[in-house]
Design a protein around this nucleic acid. Structure first.
Lengths: 249, 249
DNA sequence: TCAAAAGTGTTTTGTCTACACCCATGC
DNA sequence: GCATGGGTGTAGACAAAACACTTTTGA
């Protein structure tokens, strides 16, 4: 059984070293219905899909989402959705807003709770076996045609990301485990859409005493190899307890 | 018609010059059912009330809330709730979180969307004609027995308020239209729960060039009368467009 | 004239900004 | 040896923190 009047949408952000992207799903109507017929709550979901042709409109792309089962906490279910879409379990995930305009979906009253996730696309596996849909990364400034208010949902997710990344060390989730300071700076320049001074940026990071020097360097690069660093959530929590203020802006 | 699986709860904050308070409602079962019988969607709501005896448990206090009508935007309906509870129309109101654990309400799956409102209790009229319930202000450190997860709902609202008040000039909504700098400082000391230096606080405010000197003073105080200031949202928006950063912490 | 809160400046300390050159590596 | 990005320091401007006394008013 699902809650017909509430769904969850996960805006999945990735960073490939140059630009910020979202993972979107495109409808594949035949595949969707075939898969649905194998599931318990087929009738419920089928009814919803029939009422909303655009859910299965093959030209529209969607933020990855679904209706909430009655017996699942919303946070847990958002994680399940993420696992379906990315094959990843251990992901940064944050609820950011509930969209509840009467006409956000035509003909039916559906609220949606927006979550955003941050992943490193290099780690990401599309599990074909689960995917009802095609999945594809899009640059934020070249989004395709989207269903319903999904444009607004993405826009608002980005606003929240831009705000939170300045005060909380969540940006690391978009990077590989080991990363260079230049990658780190480029990430912030991309998200906040502004150039930063390299020396000042590095001084600020160094003073926080936050990153662990892995003693390793880049390999196979055609220029001076950069040092690789790690971020450790536990160390951050220690520092925070002692009064560290993380701020990059 | 209402959405049975989703409600809105409004955490209403007020400041009386010394402490931060929440406006809570206590159930009055007879009155509630009498009023309900006069309303269109009586059957829907009655059914919910019957399924949840604690909704009408006269010992418990509640964050003011209700189920969402199918034909109302959630933001609009949150404002209607506020009007019911306070008689006030022009109020600062902010959606902050959706609570969606399976067992947050026993026996029934109900999500609730949390909003918080900031009002000046002196302006506040309890419209007896509308109130289904008793309404009363409680200090945050002396809350009564609460229904369901309403303690958590209030706690999380306070966290959001504490965070937002530092970067956005929303604290003014808790003050009278004309206020002294001491009142303003006390408000921040109360919300952020820390003492601040008067001279430094005033210098910071003065530099923002944000407050309008009303040329008036306090009257009937048994000490030197303080100057009264006003905050104007439009002036703030102008200043912000020119790059003003509001920050008090 | 006393009590109670209003109002005000300076010094020190730390943080932010602006800015230019040498270094290591692969090809 | 050259192209490419990696890595570093200093000076000046600005903001934050620490700190104590005088002023105004009503009772």
């Amino acid at each position: 059984m699902i809650l017909k009047s509430v769904s969850i949408d996960c805006v999945i952000f990735g960073f490939d070293g140059n630009s910020l992207k979202v993972l979107l799903s495109q409808n594949n109507p035949e595949e969707t219905l075939k898969q649905l017929s194998e599931q318990d709550d087929y009738e419920d979901i089928k009814e919803l899909y029939m009422e909303h042709p655009s859910l299965t409109d093959p030209r529209c792309w969607n933020v990855f989402g679904a209706h909430i089962p009655v017996d699942k906490d919303i946070d847990d279910f958002a994680r399940e959705l993420l696992l379906m879409a990315t094959g990843m379990n251990d992901v940064f995930l944050n609820q950011y807003y509930c969209f509840g305009k009467v006409n956000r979906v035509p003909k039916n009253r559906v609220l949606t709770i927006g979550y955003y996730a941050l992943i490193n696309p290099a780690h990401h596996l599309i599990k074909k076996s689960i995917a009802l849909n095609d999945l594809k990364w899009f640059k934020l400034d070249h989004l395709p045609k989207l269903s319903f208010d999904h444009g607004e949902i993405i826009k608002k997710a980005l606003e929240h990301l831009r705000n939170e990344v300045r005060y909380k060390p969540i940006g690391f989730h978009l990077l590989p485990d080991k990363f260079t300071l230049t990658e780190f700076q480029t990430l912030y320049e991309t998200i906040l859409d502004k150039k930063m001074d390299t020396r000042n940026f590095r001084k600020k990071i160094a003073k926080m005493d936050l990153l662990i020097d892995t003693e390793e360097k880049q390999e196979n690069v055609s220029h001076r190899a950069a040092k690789l660093y790690r971020f450790d959530e536990q160390i951050y929590n220690h520092l925070k307890a002692e009064g560290l203020k993380f701020r990059i802006e």
